[in-house]
Write a protein that binds this DNA or RNA. Sequence first.
DNA 1: CGTGTTTGACCGGCGC
DNA 2: GCGCCGGTCAAACACG
Length: 339
Amino acid sequence: MEFTSLVDTSLDLNFRPLRVPDGVPKQEVESNFIGLGIDHTPVKDEASDLLEELNRVSAENKKLTEMLTVMCQNYNALRNQVTEYMSKHNSTTTTTSADDHSAGSKKRKSENNEILKSIQGESSSSDEDNSCTKKPREEHIKTKTTRVYVRTEPSDTSLIVKDGFQWRKYGQKVTRDNPSPRAYFKCSFAPNCLVKKKVQRSVEDQSILVATYEGEHNHSHPSKMDAVTTSPCSRLNGKSTLGVTASVPCHTLNSTEPKNMLQIEDKKVASSTSTSTAGGHKRKLLSGGADNNNHQNRPEFQHFLIEQMATSLTKDPSFQAALAAAISGKFLPNNQTDK
DNA sequence: CGTGTTTGACCGGCGC
DNA sequence: GCGCCGGTCAAACACG
C-alpha cells in the first residue's frame, strides 16, 4: 500500500541496452539497440521487427511491474497482519516454533518453563528473585531466548550462521535428540556481552540450521558502524556462501535493537539471494515506524529500493531462467509462442 | 605471535 | 547416590 505508492516499480533489470527510459525517443533507442554488436545488417524490416520486439518486451516489463505491484500489495497486507500478530503475541512468538521437538530432554522442559515464567510474570515474581540469589549467573542468560531457522546449502556442513555479530565458538557437543553436533558460541564483539548462541542442524532437514540466541546484546549491531561500506552479514567470516544464511537471523536479532535496522538491512538485502530478499524487504518494512517514511520518501531511498528489487530478481536463478526463456522466445522467430 | 577453533574433561541439574 | 545429559572450561592446535 504505502510501499507501492512510494516505489517506482518499473524495473531496471540491468538490461541497459533494452531499457526504454521514459524520456528517450524511440529512434534513439533503436539505434542503441542496433549498435549492440549483433551481427545482422540493419535492414528496415528487421529494424521494425526489433522495434516491435522492443515494444513487446516493454509490455512484458509492464506486466511484470504490475505483478510486482500486486506482490507488494499482498506483502503489505501480510505485513500488517504480522505486525498486528506480533504486537499481540510479543514475546511468545520468539520461543515457540514448529521444530520444538517435544521429545527433548527434561532439561529443555524446565527451560521452557522458565521462559514461560518469565513471560507470565517478569516483574512481580518473588520466587524468581529468590532463585536469582541461588543462580545469579543463569539469571542473565534467561532474559531472552530467540530461535532462528536458517536454510543453508546441503554441502555446507559448517555450523556458521552469519548474523552480523561476532561470535567465538567455545564448545561443541552431540546431543541426544539430534545426531548432528551442536555448536556453542559467545558474542565476542563486546567483551562484556553475555549473549550466547547455539547452532544445530534441524533433525528433519539437515539443510536447516537452528540457531538459538540467549540474552540480549548490550551493544549496537556491529554493522551499524560500517553499514554503508560492508555487508554486515559477510563480515563475520566468509565460509558460508549463501546469502540466505544472513537474512533471517539478522531480522530476529535486530528485533532487539530497532534503532539501526534500516541501514543494516539495506546492505543485507543487497547481498542476499532472492529467497532472502523477501525477508529483507519485509524486515525493512517491519522496522519502519513513522521515521521510516522520511527515509522512504527520499529519492535515493526509492532508487535504492528499486535497485534492491532488481538485484534480488536478477540474482534469482529461476527468474533468470524464466527471463532468458522469455527473451529468447521473443527473439527467436521459431520459438514465438504466445503465453 | 595473536586469535580463533577443536575437543576431551569437568560441572551441575534432574530423574530415578 | 548414581547415571544421564546439556553446558562450559581450557589446553592443545591451526591458521594467517
